[in-house]
């Protein structure tokens, strides 16, 4: 097993963990974190597999894509956090209505 695959497998595990968290946790902050973990998993798979070039220089294209992806993820996270604050302000709880337990 090459390190590239090992890292890719870690990425896959992160992806699954993120999905698991997104489903099971109700607090929006956790959901947002879960999405970020899920995204990190995807980015890790993307970057890790780029090292399969055989020499020391990995493929630059996936690296650039991951940078783009990270900026997109950061932007989305910022919007999500701002929305979460608003949800909290409007409903008194940072939880989606279908997940409320009363």
């Amino acid at each position: 097993m090459t390190p590239a695959f090992l890292y890719a497998l870690v990425g896959i595990v992160l992806f699954s963990i993120g999905l698991y968290g997104l489903i099971l946790y109700k607090h929006l902050l956790r959901k947002i974190l879960a999405i970020n973990i899920l995204g990190s998993g995807v980015f890790l798979v993307m970057v890790a597999l780029a090292a399969r070039t055989g020499d020391a220089v990995p493929d630059a294209v996936p690296h650039a894509m991951v940078i783009t992806g990270i900026v997109v993820a950061v932007s989305a996270t910022a919007l999500a956090l701002a929305l979460m604050l608003r949800v909290d302000a409007e409903t008194g709880q940072a939880v989606l209505p279908e997940d409320r337990e009363e």
């Binding site: 890719a8 798979v45 597999l49 070039t53 055989g54 220089v57 493929d59 630059a60 294209v61």
Partner: peptide, 12 residues
């Protein structure tokens, strides 16, 4: 992922 070839140049 396992089934991918172990070496790939991609666009490097």
């Amino acid at each position: 992922v396992w089934s991918l070839p172990t070496q790939a140049l991609g666009l490097s």
